[in-house]
Amino acid sequence: MEEKKNPILRTDQLQTFYVLDMQGTQKIIKAVNDVNLNIYENEIYGIAGESGCGKTTLLKALFADIVPPLRLIGGKVYYRVNGKDEIEATALSAEEKRKLRLEFISNVPQGCMSVLNPVLKVKETYKDFIASHVREQSRREEIFDRAHKQILEFGLPKNVLDVYPHQLSGGMRQRVTVALAALMKPRIMIGDEPTTALDVVVQRGVIQMLKEIQKKLKNTIVIVSHDMGVQANIADRIGIMYAGKIVEESTAERIFDRPLHPYTQFLIHSLPKLGDKTIRGSVPGSPPSLADLPDGCPFHPRCPKVMEICRRQMPDFSYPDENHKVACWLMEEGKHGQAA
């Protein structure tokens, strides 16, 4: 835990909104609203939440990929490259960002169907990726050789480079994209729902692979998934996101053992389990529109324990434990407890 002091990826009151200009009237979608994250080296950080809570936008911001209509309204994203001083990722030029990508930070995309070029063999895609980062021909070949070895290490068949993407099954294709993202041994890998479209058995294979890579490279993986089962299996620390804000953050064990925010409690207790047929409710209502957030705590219209103050004011974080933070008025009142 000694590296805890120096986060490799940090955001400081990050606010990124989609600003849409619709015939004179502005529509502002508050996708990421005041998010402070500290992500350390050698950990897997999970971000969980319903669709439309801003998880994907947060990842875009972490990747410093903020293009209109998405705009950086406030706050900063910092990277710590090579363990030295922090650099402000959001202030880098396009060329500097391009250099950092794949070598320092890489992205594991969701839709594995549309990621690989369908008319090129997988190895051509690999060569493209290498060529965009390595100038010298000899080094390119060296890295391509490494790619061959790496593919075998990850348990993929060796002929995978010589086929077209459509010849691979969905799970194999997803694992090729994961291998591709890990090619230059990046310090941070960011995955946006990397297992969502997959079957359970294949999903297990991809999670297994991500964990192996992390163990081997000792790097950081940030993984977004709405599936709490996936999060429980992969993440070391989990942040729960709701309506553009992180509402609870802790280690995976604590989140599942003792969720404090009513929303987290719902997320975990609404999951059906094998061998348990008791009636389970779902979170009542539906997530709020990010363009029209309710006052106060954004969860208050759906919260079963809503109080007067929740309707007026957003709670600050309270720290029931060193590694645990939660934004809920129940904590202030000392009335927290398990789900009803």
């Binding site: 297990r204 294979g205 429980a232 299996n233 599942f256 094998l274």
Partner: peptide, 15 residues
Amino acid sequence: SIPQADPKKRWTTSI
């Protein structure tokens, strides 16, 4: 292969 929502019940074998 169903992911269990419990960090204590992670998969231990590989497939």
